[in-house]
Amino acid sequence: MDMQIAQSSDYVASSQLKASYQTLQSIEPDDFFAMYSLFSRYYDGTSLEEFSEDFKVKSGAIILRDGTGSIQGFSTQEISEFAFENERYTVIFSGDTIVDHHHWGQQALNYEWMRFTGVTSRNMNTEKLYWFLIVKGHRTYRYLQAFYKNFYPAYNLDTNEMDQKLLHFLAADKYKQNYCANSGVVKFAAAKCRLKDEWAEIPLKDRPRPAVQYFLKRNPGYQRGDELACLCQLSAENHRPFVRRLFLNAQSVG
């Protein structure tokens, strides 16, 4: 996953961006192909077949549209329940995520994420909700710090033992031998989906950031497509104040 930006040749200027979560069954074929078109402009090492196979196992996607209804971004989501060490957890796994660069900095997708996670928290059958993701780029890693107080791994926090075990369990369960528990990185033997060179380069202004330096230390092979496994508990207490209200509102009324 990488909350990066991509160029779209069919950009239509619009200030009326709207994001909504759609179940897999409600996404029309034309929208699916529009999503792949946007994704493939931004990533190397992908194919329609691989994108489709990954898409099929998701629960749905948060889709960002402009005033004409054209897709300007999306983030696929998979909701699952896991039993681990005598407790059950609900886990949201975020997959392919991209936003057209004309809309970089928009907040509609972020607000819908908060609404989506709040509704998921309200409807789940377990006591705890976690966000599990694997991160290709520094921008996504910095989103964790922007929205949440505690997440793992973090440059300024020690991972508690239980969350470390849960992270290892989830990553090993999903990626099997491609996950290295010692490094916390998912590596694929064959070249997989990776950021195109023009987007993988980290701007000079961002390199000094502590979070960026830590991401590079933990995932030095990000340009090859290596991904850092991350985990964050989606409790009201763990949200930073400016997004906590959005989460709680959705948790209580949907």
Rank of each mutant, 00 (worst) to 15 (best):
Y141G: 01
Y152K: 07
C232I: 04
N178V: 06
Q77C: 13
D30V: 13
S70Y: 08
V12E: 15
P29Y: 00
E127S: 11
E53H: 00
Y111Q: 13
R240N: 12
V91S: 01
V99D: 01
A190F: 05
I5N: 10
S26M: 14
E161R: 08
D44S: 12
S15N: 15
W104L: 07
N182G: 15
E85M: 14
Q145F: 05
N182W: 04
E78Q: 02
R115W: 02
D197W: 00
G67N: 12
D54S: 10
V135W: 00
M162F: 04
Y111E: 15
C180K: 11
H138V: 10
G95C: 09
Q223C: 14
V135H: 00
Q164V: 02
D2Q: 00
F132C: 07
V12H: 05
L166G: 03
E237H: 06
T68H: 09
T23V: 05
L216N: 05
K149G: 15
Q16M: 13
P208I: 03
S15I: 09
M114F: 06
L216Q: 10
A250L: 03
K217W: 03
F116E: 01
D226V: 01
V12L: 12
C232A: 12
Q77Y: 04
P153T: 09
A108T: 01
D31P: 04
W104A: 13
G105K: 01
R218K: 13
R209P: 02
Y152H: 08
K217F: 06
Q164C: 12
G221T: 13
K18P: 12
D44L: 03
V99T: 06
N125K: 05
W131R: 02
I202R: 04
P241N: 00
I202E: 07
N182K: 13
M162S: 13
Q22D: 13
V186T: 11
L17Y: 03
L24D: 06
P210Y: 00
E78T: 02
N178E: 13
Q177E: 15
F33E: 15
Y36I: 12
L246K: 04
A250G: 10
A108Q: 03
M124L: 11
R194W: 00
M35C: 15
G137W: 00
S75E: 09
S15W: 05
K192I: 11
Y36R: 12
Q177G: 14
F82T: 09
G95L: 03
R194K: 08
Y214D: 08
S37C: 13
Q72T: 04
R122W: 00
F93S: 06
L246N: 13
D2Y: 00
K174M: 15
D173L: 08
A19V: 07
G184H: 02
D100N: 11
Y11E: 05
G184I: 05
Y175H: 15
L17S: 11
D66Q: 09
I27C: 10
L38D: 04
L195T: 08
T126S: 04
